[in-house]
Design a protein around this nucleic acid. Structure first.
Length: 121
DNA sequence: CAACTGACTCACT
DNA sequence: TAGTGAGCCAGTT
């Protein structure tokens, strides 16, 4: 017993966890690679998450455009344009510098989308 | 089997 | 305030 696995608390591939966590993110909300990695079970695997997004064979099937850097900026010079476009379509304000306010759109990890008013400022 | 890369993050200078 | 370096994780070659 006690399968000594330094990593992978679950037999499920890290990829799967990231996908599930990403699919949990409601529209109009964004998460950072670190947050997504945390939900996936690896708070330090932000890099791995980024790679999965770049490799994501699901393409548009996966809301990878909701994943941004911890600085609130869109990474990937090749995709940041489309990312910002999709985020704006979901109601997320993306600055001309491809910057998103995590304080407003940063997902807390709660699927409860009660931002109906979203005008508290 | 081992090494390098990469859509990251944090800390220090 | 901005820029640079080292660390960490998973996937690819």
């Amino acid at each position: 017993m006690a399968p000594k696995r330094k990593t992978a608390p679950k037999p499920e591939p890290f990829r799967r966890r990231v996908e599930e966590a990403l699919l949990r993110v409601p529209a109009g909300r964004v998460v950072t690679y670190g947050q997504l990695a945390l939900l996936a079970g690896r708070p330090r695997a932000a890099r791995a998450v980024g790679m999965l997004m770049a490799q994501n064979p699901y393409g548009e099937l996966l809301p990878c455009h909701r994943v941004i850097a911890a600085s609130g900026r869109l990474s990937s010079r090749s995709f940041r344009v489309e990312q910002a476009r999709r985020l704006r379509e979901e109601g997320v304000e993306v600055s001309a510098d491809y910057r998103v306010d995590l304080s407003r759109y940063g997902w807390d990890g709660v699927s409860e989308e009660k931002e109906g008013e979203a005008g508290c400022e």
